[in-house]
Amino acid sequence: MNRRTRILAASLCLAVPGGLTACGLDSDDAAAPHVREAAAYLALAEEEGGLGEDAVVDSDTPRLEALAAEEVEDTRTEPTDTGDVCDFDAHRARVVARHDENADGELGRRELRALRADLDERRDFLRSRLAQGGRRVRPQAFWRVRWVFDEDADGALSSDERAALGDAMEARCQRLRARRLEQYDTNGDGVLDEAERRAVRESRRARWELLRQERLQAYDVNHDGALDASESATLRKARVEAAWKRRAEVLTTYDTDADGVLSTTEALPLREALQQRITEGHDAER
Rank of each mutant, 00 (worst) to 15 (best):
A68Q: 04
R3G: 06
A10Y: 03
N222D: 15
V261M: 13
R172S: 05
S203P: 12
L64E: 07
R198I: 10
E73L: 10
G260H: 03
S263E: 09
V221A: 13
H34G: 04
R175F: 01
S263R: 12
T5Q: 15
E106Q: 12
R110E: 08
A163S: 11
L235P: 03
G166T: 03
C13M: 11
F125S: 02
H282I: 04
Q275Y: 06
L8M: 09
A9E: 11
A156I: 06
N102A: 09
E209H: 12
S27M: 12
S232P: 06
P79W: 15
D283R: 12
P269D: 06
E161F: 06
R146L: 12
L64R: 08
R98W: 04
A38S: 09
D118L: 03
A195H: 15
A90K: 13
L235G: 04
A43I: 08
N102Y: 10
R247K: 15
L8F: 14
S158Q: 05
G18I: 03
G188H: 10
P62H: 08
R122V: 03
R63L: 14
A243K: 07
Y184H: 11
R4V: 11
L8T: 01
I7T: 10
S263N: 10
E214G: 11
L126G: 01
G83I: 07
G133W: 08
V56I: 14
L235H: 04
D124N: 14
V56A: 09
A218D: 08
T21G: 05
D124M: 04
R212M: 01
T82G: 14
R127I: 03
H34P: 04
K245H: 10
W208V: 05
L274P: 00
E106V: 05
M169Y: 15
R212P: 00
T21M: 12
L115E: 07
L176R: 15
D185W: 01
A40W: 00
A199H: 10
Q217M: 13
E249V: 01
E280K: 12
D154M: 05
A55G: 07
R201T: 06
H99L: 11
D167L: 12
A168K: 01
A178F: 09
L67T: 01
E285D: 05
D54P: 05
C23V: 10
G281A: 12
A163L: 11
H282G: 00
D74L: 10
D220M: 12
Q276F: 14
L181D: 04
S263M: 09
S11Y: 09
T61W: 08
L235D: 05
R197I: 02
V85W: 05
D26N: 14
G50M: 14
G105Q: 05
A141D: 02
T234Y: 07
V85K: 02
A233L: 11
L51V: 02
D220K: 07
A226C: 02
A22K: 04
E194Q: 15
A153Y: 09
N102W: 08
R110T: 06
R172Y: 07
D60W: 11
E121W: 03
V137A: 13
A178V: 01
F142L: 03
L262S: 02
E272I: 05
T80I: 14
D150P: 01
M1H: 12
E73N: 04
H91N: 10
R205I: 14
A93N: 09
A114H: 06
L216H: 07
R207K: 15
E78A: 15
A229M: 13
D154W: 08
V96P: 00
R246L: 11
D26Y: 15
A238D: 08
G52D: 03
